[in-house]
Design a protein around this nucleic acid. Structure first.
Lengths: 238, 238
DNA sequence: TCAACTCTTTGACCTAGCACAAAGTCCGCC
DNA sequence: GGCGGACTTTGTGCTAGGTCAAAGAGTTGA
């Protein structure tokens, strides 16, 4: 099981952390200061839970750095990744959808840093801070769209297409241009990729081996570089 | 393609239509009157689109009677049902998630009746009517939960379990107690069921035939009666 | 430098459920 | 009342991709 580590307040936070992030970008310096003073900052190792499904939704988060995946764990213990959340987005906003427990578990995919606030401040944020609610709901809308897409993919696409799509999404969100291609910016195992695409690590491994032979990708342990994104797009279309 | 039929105003609407529905239940009679006076009422035949994916989200709806399924259509023309919405719920609330086009198509599963309002009234509803926003976001939260569940199902369950689950959900939402079991309250084809569970009508047909032989269900053309829900629950658990 | 992990690859086999095909049944309409 | 269309059933392959098994290759730390 994943322990949830205790929070820890770090030295005074700088305002520039938030000023460029949409939910806060319309606020005055003074407001941002207040928000930061109420925040708790914390670093998370890779692979730990930020919060867990079913637990009391007592805090909401802003991911400042790193990458989080939102997973659900089935009765039989399999993990299914429902969403990936990149830095700069809110997380654990159960209150926004009228829930008082978290509907899923959030696990870090890499080492990450997040601010968090007690959920009792939620209503204040929504009413006091101009643009906060709107931006939050946009994020929500975006996520609903992604979930929809995922449902359609699962329902209609072959494994090969799904894996290709997942890879493309990952390099779009977190790709880093490197020599000879675009590399996924954090360590990711075949197992992770299989949980994202609802297949087995064996199948993912076979697919990647095949693609590597064709020169579409290069990969080492926990690292994947896409050399020919266009070919992947073609594959992903079936 | 599905034509979207023109709206038509019916005779003066009665307040009791809304008073017992959560988004409106806290309002005063006077407010409900205003809301109704601004509403357009319309009847939809079975199998027509209430609104379509990608179109301008210019109205939001309250389903008063009937049943709507929210579908997405893939590039290859297959339909995937993302959600089922029963009477008494809001529909087409794109604005609530910061979108200005509808993210999916809503098709009636039966003959249905819905009220609708121009989207420009949305903000008024949210700010003026006590409880409206909260209830709306609860609905949204509920739907997000359902989508999550669907993703997990698609990712981990066998076809038989998914079909069993779909049937159970349908009788829970719209089951009508009848002689010898619970019947789904509207006409539903094997094709519909296969779109709900991401399989083929052939497989659904085979499964239902099998279950019928074991006495779990009885079905005629477009009608399904579940005789032994408990056995279905067992099946659905794998 | 070796032991213990964790991650990856590859092979051999097997089966759930899809595709294709054809026939049967129910229903509304002319 | 019978014709045409919409729905359903059932049979016969076939194959994508899962399962099981085993071995190889990085990584960590003592």
């Amino acid at each position: 099981m994943n322990e949830i580590a205790p929070r820890k307040t770090l030295p005074r936070l700088d305002e520039s952390l938030l000023t460029h992030l949409p939910p806060f970008s319309r606020l005055e310096k003074r407001q941002i200061r207040t928000i930061l003073d109420q925040a708790t900052s914390r670093r998370y190792d890779a692979g730990v839970a930020v919060f867990e499904e079913g637990h009391d939704a007592d805090r909401f988060y802003m991911l400042l750095d790193g990458y989080v995946r939102v997973v659900r764990i089935t009765p039989t213990g399999e993990q299914v990744t429902a969403l990936h959340i990149p830095a700069g987005q809110l997380l654990g906003i159960a209150k926004a959808i009228g829930r008082d427990t978290y509907p899923a578990t959030a696990m870090t995919a890499t080492e990450s840093i997040a601010l968090s606030w007690p959920m009792r401040l939620w209503d204040t944020f929504v009413t006091e801070y101009d643009g906060f609610a709107t931006e939050t709901y946009k994020t929500l809308g975006h996520r609903v769209g992604e979930m929809n897409t995922r449902i359609v993919e699962l329902a209609t696409q072959q494994v090969e297409q799904r894996v290709a799509n997942a890879l493309l999404r990952l390099i779009n969100q977190t790709g880093r241009k490197v020599d000879g291609g675009i590399e996924i910016n954090f360590p990711i195992t075949r197992q992770d990729l299989s949980e994202l695409t609802a297949t087995t690590l064996h199948t993912v491994s076979r697919l990647l081996s095949g693609w590597e032979k064709q020169g579409l990708v290069e990969s080492k342990r926990k690292r994947i570089k896409v050399c020919d994104p266009h070919a992947l797009v073609v594959l992903s279309q079936g």
